[in-house]
Design a protein around this nucleic acid. Structure first.
Length: 164
DNA sequence: GCCAACGTTGGC
DNA sequence: GCCAACGTTGGC
């Protein structure tokens, strides 16, 4: 069984539309510098997993679409570059500290499923993204949560906010 | 731009 | 190993 994930990115920096424009519609998901998230990237991501592309720190935070994992965790080479903003001198080829995966664009949602809507839904109260102070940039998603969020895509947001 | 939440750092 | 200070995330 594949895993499901939610991966956050600020659309001003890198959006799902940017991913769609990349060669082969693929990109490295690099720059993660949090140990909990590092462990997920290193140990739990598998080829064939799917992930929600979540737009954060923007006008309408929420799930914008879907991507798939096309390469499992491997050392994040952005940590090797002393000129780069993600440089870490403690990360080396021999003893990597930080990991990344490769993702591939799958599709853009018909509409953004917003954080505001997700907060209204009883079905998602256990989902970390709706909880205060949850700041991890990657979160695991259960099969039930995945399915439920997909069902929200096909509803009108007003209806979800009023009646979920 | 504010600030709550939480992770990291470093002095002791 | 404690904990205060500081930095970052990210919604609002």
């Amino acid at each position: 069984m594949p895993n499901y994930w939610l991966m956050k990115s600020e659309p001003d920096m890198f959006s799902i539309y940017d991913l769609r424009k990349r060669p082969k519609q693929r990109e490295h998901w690099d720059g993660v510098r949090n140990y909990q998230v590092r462990n997920m990237l290193r140990d739990d991501f598998r080829v064939g997993d799917q992930a929600f592309f979540y737009h954060s720190s923007c006008k309408e935070p929420g799930v914008a679409g879907i991507m798939k994992i096309v390469r499992a965790g491997y050392p994040d080479h952005s940590a090797l570059n002393p000129e780069g903003e993600h440089y870490d001198p403690k990360h080396t080829l021999e003893t990597p500290r930080w990991y990344m995966v490769d993702v591939e664009f799958e599709r853009v949602f018909k509409r953004v499923v917003t954080l505001e809507e997700m907060k209204q839904c009883l079905e998602l109260q256990d989902f970390a993204v709706v909880q205060r102070g949850s700041r991890l940039s990657i979160l695991p998603v259960t099969a039930a949560q995945w399915k439920f969020i997909l069902s929200l895509e096909d509803r009108r947001s007003r209806e979800v906010l009023d009646g979920c």
